[in-house]
């Protein structure tokens, strides 16, 4: 499938982020000097299509947040490129970065922590307009604030503008947080675990609201989570990350109904379901142990140390690249036909 450049809002190519660890005092005293780079993101490539919700999924430590931060331009990539609307934005000057930060917004996990409790909602929403020096007097700003509150369905907007954050429910606070990102008219929203700490009903409410807003305004989302169940409901496509690489990518339904990579299969296995009859069962987990350290990535296929199907060839051969299995479904397992 070939995509017109116009259909792609962001192209990520072989993006890497290697951190240099700070040596701890103890290490330097002990003279155990070798600093190994922490390969948090180690060569990922994907396109974000205009108007889609793209999910980035994986275990803790797989590099999801680091990827999100690079896309937000909060940290510099070690190598690789990011092309936004046809323009290379991997390295930009201060001015361009400022404009970029308006076009690409982030939704935070804990909307309460990111709001000044002494600000009324009106002021919470005006803050980004002031930070980004958006022109207009208070009245013009009020119009923009009302518009964004209406977009997230906080009705009547005028009444909510006079409230303080503590006077809102969790769901309403997340709506305000979303309104605050929408007020700058972004094209792309990065949402890093926006609902993971929120209870079920509120979570459903927020995801439904975010989806409505996305459709109404034609936005593109990068949705970062370790929760496959919400990802299936919420996203159009999913990429599964393992230890800094994408190991499988495809349309959400296809990927979850027909997973190819043993890691994706294991993730799906582990997800609990609201069905009876499992209390006395010890769940068979196809993979054990913890994700290896990104400072010490296994050779060959980086998943081989935990893979139930691994053979010597998996560690001896070079790292598998993403392969196309058809239907836009990509995976990085050489032995996929045998397993």
């Amino acid at each position: 499938m070939s995509l017109n450049d116009n259909d792609v809002i962001l192209q990520v190519k072989d993006l890497k982020k290697h951190f240099t660890p700070h040596q701890s005092l103890i290490q330097s005293l002990a003279g155990s000097g070798q600093k190994r780079p922490i390969k948090a993101v180690d060569g990922i490539t994907f396109d974000l299509r205009r108007g889609e919700i793209f999910g980035l999924i994986g275990e803790s430590g797989s590099g999801k947040t680091t990827t999100g931060k690079m896309i937000m331009k909060l940290i510099e990539p070690t190598s690789g490129t990011m092309v936004f609307n046809g323009e290379d934005v991997t390295h930009t000057d201060k001015l361009r970065t400022q404009v970029y930060r308006r076009q690409v917004q982030m939704i935070f996990q804990d909307p309460y922590a990111s709001m000044n409790p002494r600000f009324k909602i009106r002021d919470v929403l005006q803050e980004p307009l002031i930070i980004h020096k958006i022109e207009g007097d208070n009245q013009k700003h009020d119009e923009m604030i009302i518009k964004s509150l209406t977009e997230v369905k906080l009705n009547p907007p005028a009444e909510f503008m006079g409230r303080y954050p503590h006077m809102l429910s969790g769901g309403q606070r997340q709506r305000v947080a979303t309104a605050r990102t929408l007020i700058l008219n972004p094209m792309l929203l990065v949402a890093d675990e926006p609902v993971s700490m929120i209870d079920l009903s509120t979570r459903a409410e927020i995801l439904a609201m975010m989806k409505d807003v996305q459709r109404d305004l034609g936005l593109t989302y990068l949705y970062i989570t370790h929760d496959l169940s919400t990802a299936r409901y919420f996203t159009d496509r999913i990429a599964v990350m393992y230890l800094g690489r994408i190991v499988e990518m495809g349309p959400a339904n296809e990927l979850i109904d027909n997973p190819i990579h043993p890691y994706t299969k294991a993730l799906i296995e582990a997800v609990p379901e609201p069905m009876t009859g499992k209390v006395d069962v010890i769940k068979e987990l196809p993979i054990s142990g913890e994700i290896p350290s990104p400072a010490n990535i296994p050779p060959g296929c980086r998943f081989h140390t935990r893979c139930p199907y691994a053979k010597p060839e998996c560690s001896e051969q070079s790292e598998p690249e993403l392969m196309d299995a058809g239907n836009g479904h990509f995976h990085a397992c050489r032995r996929w036909k045998e397993i």
Binding site: G58, E59, S60, M197, A270, L285
Partner: peptide, 9 residues
């Protein structure tokens, strides 16, 4: 606060 695999473990 844990991911699905660690949760299951």
């Amino acid at each position: 606060a844990l991911d699905v695999i660690v949760q299951a473990q």
